[in-house]
Design a protein around this nucleic acid. Structure first.
Lengths: 253, 253
DNA sequence: TATACTAAGCTGTATATACAACCTGAAACA
DNA sequence: TGTTTCAGGTTGTATATACAGCTTAGTATA
């Protein structure tokens, strides 16, 4: 299948991302200016501007009016406070590579898993274990259990092509989710998968998703503390000038 | 102080957001097309395009080439999630017991602090260092800097009676907040304050709060990984009775 | 030497224009 | 009636142009 022709601004983005990912451009290095991109890539300045602006939004570079554009400290990010597909998130950042599933198996739910999924001990569940990479470095171990009755064809999926998230979204509309974020020391297996230093903490997201009033899947997402952080933004709705009271008075800083 | 004139594209965004926030435009409603905005707001189509494109990125609307732009179903949800997270997490802080402030001082902003607060190196800031307890155990070290011009009487406050958060809310209404969550090993001082085991990771929340378009305060909140976790919940809104299918394709499990 | 000024380069925004791809509904047709 | 075609509206992208505001380095000046 022929690669669809990407838009010009995306080609510019890809070029910059490639040069950052490869190490050719390091943090704080200067990125070609818009006018330099106009010449080197034969695009208009507006196209170069859009490419660099989107790279700014995505956290690849930082721009200083009057000065230039510079590679930012690359730290993998995701939005804690939004429930969001990590595939989208990382696709937006460029080069996520999902390994072949280390393990896809049928199991009987025990202990924590059974309780989390609200099924009886011994009920049938599927277990997935994957490692996600970004820019060649492992960034997430996804350790997921799925209630078998929701995903009868789970074992047939190619989870290096379709993320479990995308697959699950297709079979069960998302209605409710809980997530818990923890800092903890990884066990040896996780530490190995994520290529972490000894003693380095991991950021763990536990996410349980419900559909139709029943738990569907429970995921433990492990990330290396040194290369991953969660970010969230909050914006108050703009208060009308005449209405003095903002609903958020009870919130604190 | 006159409100700085916003860019035209931001004015367009604000208009749409206001109409969605007020309920005038409901999910699935059609948003004015680019050409309609060109006429009604006297902007160029590219400016209207940028506004709508950014609103798409931010989840307010969804666009269908050839058809139109429509209010997104999921915006309210993820927005609710954002607000609830910060609200919950912060409401919880209201019930903590705060020790006497370990330190309240006037400082000159340097490095990271100056950058975070968008003030010049050497500008005057106040520094607070407090330890919060829950059930008799230390649960959070609050290491906070406040732009001095926002809090002239900061040094006179009794922060064992009024939390810094409550004080800051009083002087500067919360408009915008960013937070970053990290897992990392604490330094010796933090570890001591939190009574942590050697090698135990801490969950660190970096929170920057804005008011009136300017950063007001930057806080580093350290928590013991073994006794603290962040939780978030997401609940889909009730689906309209007649509409069975909710478009949540972009959400993940 | 130290200060002030200036010019060049950069980002940020805004506009006018153009064409392609896509969707929808209405008109034409079988 | 059922189907096809087509025109108009809409988004997506790309370009050329313009001006404002900021930064920096180099130059002129005191």
């Amino acid at each position: 299948m022929a690669e669809a022709l990407k838009p010009r601004y995306q080609q510019v983005k890809d070029l910059i991302i490639e040069r950052i990912s490869s190490g050719e451009l390091k943090p704080a290095d200067r990125v070609p200016s818009e006018n330099e991109l106009v010449v080197s890539m034969s695009v208009s300045r507006m196209t170069a501007n859009r490419a660099l602006r989107e790279l700014t939004d995505e956290g690849w570079v930082e721009r200083v009016a009057g000065s230039g554009t510079f590679v930012s400290e690359i730290r993998a990010q995701s939005h804690v406070l939004e429930v969001r597909n990590i595939a989208d998130e990382i696709a937006a950042r460029g080069h996520l590579h999902t390994s072949r599933a280390l393990r896809v198996s049928r199991q009987h739910a025990r202990g924590e898993i059974a309780r989390a999924l609200h099924v009886e001990q011994g009920s049938e569940v599927f277990h997935l274990l994957l490692v996600h990479h970004e820019n060649g470095l492992p960034i997430q171990v996804e350790d997921r259990h799925v209630v078998a009755s929701f995903a009868p064809d789970c074992l047939d999926q190619d989870f290096s092509a379709v993320t479990p998230s995308a697959y699950l979204t297709a079979i069960a509309p998302l209605a409710e989710a809980e997530q818990v974020v923890r800092a903890q020391l990884p066990n040896a297996a996780i530490r190995g998968h994520l290529d972490m230093e000894d003693g380095e903490p991991s950021l763990v997201v536990l996410r349980r998703t419900w559909s139709g009033g029943r738990p569907v899947t429970f995921a433990r997402l492990h990330h290396p503390g040194s290369r991953y952080e969660l970010t969230g933004k909050y914006q108050a709705r703009e208060a009308p000038a005449e209405a003095g009271v903002i609903e958020l008075e009870n919130l604190t800083q």
